[in-house]
Amino acid sequence: MLFWYTVAVLLSLAIFSFLWKDNPLYKFAEHLFVGTMVGYTIVMVFSQIIMRKIVDPITLAVHNHQYLNLISLIIATLIGLLYLSRFSQKAQWVSRYPISITVGFWSGYAIVTSFKTNILTQVRGTVVDDMGAPLLNGELLGDFIKSPSWSSLDLAVSGPLLVFGVIVVLIYFFFSIKNENPMVRFANKPALLYLMLGFGASFGYTFMGRISLFIGRMNFIFNEWWPLLKQTIGG
């Protein structure tokens, strides 16, 4: 185990050595990364798709005399094989068939999924919350006036601020060209405020995610590898 832990530590340090400058150790680790990634992907494609979705089902279809299924699998495999025509100068146009089938299918697929998840779900989330309560709820403002507190203020203003934010950001993006409409001009500043708060917060979140990865690596070196090394050397 110490051997593999040491390999992991040395490779992590080789990557971090880039902070000093681009050097052969970093390049070695970088190329090792590419090699392992590609090798791993080849094995995964072979085991999860070639074997599990082509060879095994074809064997099963032949065994169970499911010829319709067999023909479907063979056609898909033959279409996939057309990708290899890219290697021929004369016949490389044939690779447009699998490309257009893939692009066409996923485009059609994306029309429905994107409409559902990116538009309908988001619009719904701007009208009602997860529990189905409306975000623009005057009663919550009344509750805040009756018994003012931070939590009642949060409940009262968060929903309207969210709805307002979504509307101004949408106006800002859809009318990004110069526009003299007073509504569009009014939306400009608050939209930028929302966007900057959003981008700043997202940046902070991403940054801390990366830092936690760094802490994870340091934790591995100092709390897992180092004690194991001391234990092994110390006998």
């Binding site: 990116n118 949060d154 979504v166 929302y194 966007l195």
Partner: peptide, 30 residues
């Protein structure tokens, strides 16, 4: 609060725009 309100509002506006873009581009491809 920042994640719940302004970030959600900004990202939701972006997501709706991206969604419309995906739908429009997909229709053009089909």
């Amino acid at each position: 609060w920042l994640m719940k309100v302004p970030t959600t509002a900004a990202m939701r506006g972006l997501t709706i725009g991206i969604g419309l873009g995906i739908v429009a581009t997909s229709i053009k491809i089909v």
